[in-house]
């Protein structure tokens, strides 16, 4: 399993290098507050990286808030146990 993961990773790195080399021409961005010029490949990579990080962050926030809520509920139940029916 680990070998397969390494293999896929190597393929993706190679593809990234090839794509970066083929799309080395610069593109300009106007973000209203700033203007920048980036290679096409780097723009692609940064868009994907930002998307990945934002996705991960959203999921992490969701899971941790769920867990905190569950802990609060557990604590509340421990302090005031529900009466036996």
């Amino acid at each position: 399993m680990r070998l397969i993961v390494i293999f896929i990773l190597v393929i993706f790195i190679a593809a990234g290098v090839v794509l970066g080399a083929l799309n080395a021409d610069m593109v300009s961005y106007d973000l209203a507050f700033a203007q920048m010029r980036l290679p096409k490949g780097a723009a692609l990579l940064s868009a994907m990286l930002i998307g990945w990080v934002l996705g991960g962050l959203t999921a992490w926030l969701g899971v941790s808030s769920e867990r905190r809520r569950a802990q609060r509920e557990l604590l509340r139940n421990a302090k005031n146990p529900p009466a036996n029916p």
């Binding site: 723009a43 692609l44 868009a47 994907m48 990286l49 930002i50 998307g51 990945w52 990080v53 934002l54 996705g55 991960g56 962050l57 959203t58 999921a59 992490w60 969701g62 899971v63 941790s64």
Partner: peptide
């Protein structure tokens, strides 16, 4: 970029949920 960024977002979200 508009197509790849949401795809990366979904992938990042899924990976984070799995690790969590």
């Amino acid at each position: 970029l508009g197509a790849l960024a949401p795809a990366a977002f979904v992938l990042g979200w899924w990976a984070s949920r799995r690790v969590g």
